[in-house]
Write a protein that binds this DNA or RNA. Structure first.
Lengths: 225, 225
DNA sequence: CAAGCCAGTAACTAATCAGTTACTTTGTGG
DNA sequence: CCACAAAGTAACTGATTAGTTACTGGCTTG
């Protein structure tokens, strides 16, 4: 049928890869499978996701999915790993050295909130993974080494604030991190049942902005002397 | 095979229901299906739950499940409704009229935390329902009417605390409720991924007790003047 | 330029799953 | 005491699903 392909056929040899529209492009195929699988797993969970649906979304043949990823479980693990790497990479780029301790904590709280807000698929994958008691995360050697960059930055800010006398002496950095994460995660991941029961759309702009301010307020109030 | 049943055969007529071990007991059958379905849906989500597994767990024939509940989706809805009714019923029994505002808020925060801790299947069902954007909850007329009793009690305590001058003027009761719920929900529902990544078992007694104290502390710190 | 490997396709298969059919057993009211 | 309804069983069915087989076409390297 499509034997005679119009343009972009040339050997494009000498090492450098063709930038676009190659008929055979392993990296692009792999990436589009991963993107499609991320959506499918995030929308339907591990149990509800369909391999055929992933193949269709990616615009590839199902056989390729098995070629690149082995099976459904390994594909899911690849999706999970990529999602974690995404947030950990983003965390690295935060620079707080110029900020006062309180400003720095506020900045980290807002970063976490905004990252969750902009990456609903990450929240959904976390939910699925916890439903299965971290079955796949525990298998992943890559992810177990991948510590949160936030924890280090949090500790440093807590030290500075303590030295200035504005933060309490006994704040556990893990508790602080969990507090920020919990407030963002719960609001967003449970927005559908909450909106239904309280008859108030939590996804509206003013509500979201109000909750961001609330997170910053609660986080700071919990550590101030 | 078991045609000749030993005891407990009698007509046990005159209106009153037999208390135990009837061969045919609609209510008991229904209840055991519901209990089995709650476990299965909580463990595997809507997509991962298996109708045959529910029947086996309940010790009944699959046909009965369709007889009493119609289909898988209606059974899931019945499970969800029962779970919500459970927490709302428990909330009703809390009496706070003798307590000072601060003590009352602390009591409600601990109630929510302990209810979550003792009913992991409720958290799991919430997660599944939100994955599907409250698809079944929105259909349920029973549940949309079922407002949280906690909200009313929270408002009353906030009023009293405000009158005493110990709470801020602008506290939104919904924000307060979401704060308490978020801190409990996130810690428990995400305990598996969190424990894996931070290399610290969040399910251990001392950690759980520490987090309960933390929830009370954060909740009160966020509303104090 | 040909040999071999890698990307890609279509159609198939064995297993699984939600839901059904056709039947038997048990309790009850006229 | 029997007729009828409700409770219960076993075996089946059609659709879906993860994973496979057997194949084609194109790129690279010696």
């Amino acid at each position: 049928m499509e034997k005679a392909q119009a343009g972009a056929r040339g050997t494009n040899g000498n090492g450098a890869r063709a930038e676009r529209s190659a008929q055979r492009d392993p990296e692009r195929t792999r990436a589009s499978i991963l993107a499609a699988a991320t959506k499918e797993f995030a929308e339907n969970g591990m149990g509800g996701a369909r391999v055929d649906a992933i193949a269709e979304r990616a615009g590839i043949n199902k056989r390729m999915l098995y070629h690149y990823f082995g099976d459904k479980e390994q594909l899911y693990l690849a999706v999970l790993e990529e999602a974690y790497i995404g947030i950990r990479t983003a965390e690295k780029s935060i620079n707080l050295s110029d900020l006062e301790p309180e400003e720095g904590i506020a900045e980290l709280a807002m970063f976490t909130w905004r990252y969750f807000l902009e990456h609903p698929e990450f929240l959904s994958l976390l939910g699925t993974e916890n439903l299965h008691r971290a079955r796949w995360l525990r298998q992943s050697t890559r992810l177990k080494e991948l510590h949160s960059q936030l924890m280090g930055k949090l500790s440093e800010l807590l030290d500075r604030g303590r030295a200035k006398g504005i933060f309490r002496e006994d704040v556990d950095p893990l508790h602080l991190y969990l507090t920020m994460a919990a407030l963002g995660y719960f609001y967003l991941s449970n927005q559908y049942t909450l909106s239904t029961i309280f008859g108030r759309d939590l996804a509206e702009r003013p509500s979201l902005e109000g909750w961001e301010r609330h997170i910053v307020h609660v986080t700071l109030a919990s550590i101030r002397r």
